[in-house]
């Protein structure tokens, strides 16, 4: 699952990356064509899907549904199912969000829709 996705991402990278770094930080969403948006959205959904599979497996899977089965193994002194339910899943959650942050900024750049290099310095002010 992960490998397949990796391929997709990198191929898009080569295809699209260098071209549009300037237009992309435009404030106007219209400069992004419909097809590019839809490709971007598909890549986004695929990535989200993969992360949610992990999210589900460690919490509902290892921590709840298979907890009793996993409890026969010991990890760091804990029954394994108990550890996933009360410790492990939370660590994985933290990692997941950071993988998401990094992965998404890659996808954003690959499709030229990232929001970096813009607005952050002046952000507090120009509201009225």
């Amino acid at each position: 699952m992960a490998g397949e996705q990796q391929d997709h991402q990198t191929s898009v990278y080569h295809h699209d990356d260098q071209g549009n770094p300037v237009e992309q930080s435009s404030h106007d969403g219209d400069t992004v064509s419909e097809t590019r948006l839809s490709d971007y959205w598909q890549a986004n959904l695929k990535f989200l899907g993969a992360l949610l599979v992990v999210w589900f497996s460690v919490s509902f899977g290892a921590g709840i549904i298979f907890a009793d089965t996993l409890d026969q193994y010991t990890f760091l002194g804990f029954p394994l199912g108990f550890w996933f339910a009360q410790q492990g899943a939370i660590y994985v959650f933290v990692v997941l969000i950071f993988v998401y942050v990094i992965g998404m900024s890659r996808i954003d750049r690959a499709y030229g829709v990232e929001d970096d290099d813009k607005t952050s310095d002046t952000a507090g002010e120009h509201t009225s």
Binding site: L48, G63, I64, A85, I90
Partner: peptide, 29 residues
């Protein structure tokens, strides 16, 4: 509550942190 529920207390641990993942991935941006 966890002290008195034992392993089942994980509903709060998993529920409150796991929901955070949903929020971060699906809604926040």
């Amino acid at each position: 509550i966890i002290a008195f529920m034992g392993r089942d207390g994980a509903v709060y641990l998993l529920g409150w942190t796991g929901g955070y993942v949903l929020l971060a991935l699906l809604l926040a941006p």
